[in-house]
Amino acid sequence: MLVNWSLRACGRHGHVTYAPVEKALRERLRAETALGEAWRCLRCGDFTLGAPHGSGPAEDAPIVLRGKALRDATILRLLAVFRWGKGLLVLAAAFGIWRFRAHQDAISMAFDEDLPLLQPLADKLGWNLEESGVVHTLRAVLSAETSTLTWIVLGLLVFGALLMVEGVGLWLLQRWGEYFAVVATSLFVPIEIYEIVEKVTWLRVVILLINLTAVLYILLSKRLFGLRGGRAAHEAERHETGLLEVETAALERSLSPHHPATATARQK
């Protein structure tokens, strides 16, 4: 089932109407009904009762996302939410390590004292605690120098901040945010591939696929780095799909001397 993104947006945010001062174009967007005047919504194209929300020259009409552009905006904002979620997890990890750094000695002592208590359970499960990768990792963290932990915290803070900024740019549909997302995500792809080579897990594979898909989607749909005509082609596409632009083009075609209706009127 095809999703009508324009109708969904109008259902959530309401219709957007505009009355151009150009008479011919104004007549194409206005209708008189038994309940009063109605104007076509610039987003979904349906007529809605009531006075227009704005008026003026057609060139000053608000650019309203509709159709494919609206779908792209929805996808980018979903990516922004994903980035914010990941950023919050990274920042939470930084906070946890910072708190651990302040109590490292006490935690390390408690770990050494409590680990032998797990030995009976480990023996029953056939789990060799001394050879356990989890135990080795915990001991490496607990024995890390304070300066090392400080650098880890700073690195996580920077990474988390980058993710939050990236999310803001994507949510606001800013061009710089799209470039930022592509560059930042691409920089971490080699690291994610290395992690998968080290150990394959479904979570790592899914995250890599999401990031690769996001990079390719933003690159191609937003025509970044000159792809598919670059920024000029992207802006032209946005304007060409606007309702006022569509109606203006239709009006110009109807007034063309080669249009069938115009030719018939001249013959009469």
Rank of each mutant, 00 (worst) to 15 (best):
S254T: 07
F225Y: 14
Q174H: 04
H259C: 06
V135H: 08
V168T: 10
D46H: 10
A161Y: 10
R139L: 12
G133H: 05
L156G: 13
S132T: 07
A31Q: 14
L29A: 05
A38P: 00
G167R: 12
G169E: 06
A9E: 13
A61V: 04
Y179L: 14
C10F: 01
S143D: 11
L203C: 00
F159G: 08
D60V: 03
F225V: 09
L156Q: 14
Y194S: 10
W151M: 15
A58E: 14
R26P: 01
A249L: 10
V3T: 14
S221P: 02
W5D: 05
T17P: 06
G45R: 03
W127R: 13
L117H: 09
V246P: 02
F159P: 00
I210W: 02
G50C: 01
L25Q: 10
R204I: 00
K222Q: 14
V246W: 01
T74M: 13
A122C: 08
W98S: 14
L173D: 15
L170S: 07
L89F: 07
A161S: 13
H136S: 14
A184I: 05
L138N: 11
L219Y: 03
W84R: 02
I207Y: 09
R175Q: 06
F100Y: 14
P20M: 11
D46S: 08
H15T: 02
I191F: 12
L138E: 04
H13D: 15
P257N: 01
I107F: 09
P260N: 09
H103C: 01
L156N: 15
L243K: 07
A122Q: 05
G226R: 09
E130T: 04
E198F: 06
L25D: 12
S55L: 02
F95S: 05
T213R: 04
S132D: 15
E178F: 00
W127Q: 09
E145R: 06
Q174M: 11
E22Q: 13
T248N: 12
V135A: 14
A9T: 04
A106P: 01
L35H: 03
V197Y: 14
G87E: 12
H53G: 15
G50I: 00
P257D: 04
L203T: 07
T137E: 12
I63D: 12
E131Q: 15
S256F: 00
R266I: 06
V200H: 14
R101Q: 15
L78A: 11
V215P: 00
A106Q: 13
L89Y: 01
A232H: 09
F111H: 11
L42R: 05
S147K: 09
V197L: 14
I218Y: 03
Y194K: 13
K222F: 03
T248S: 08
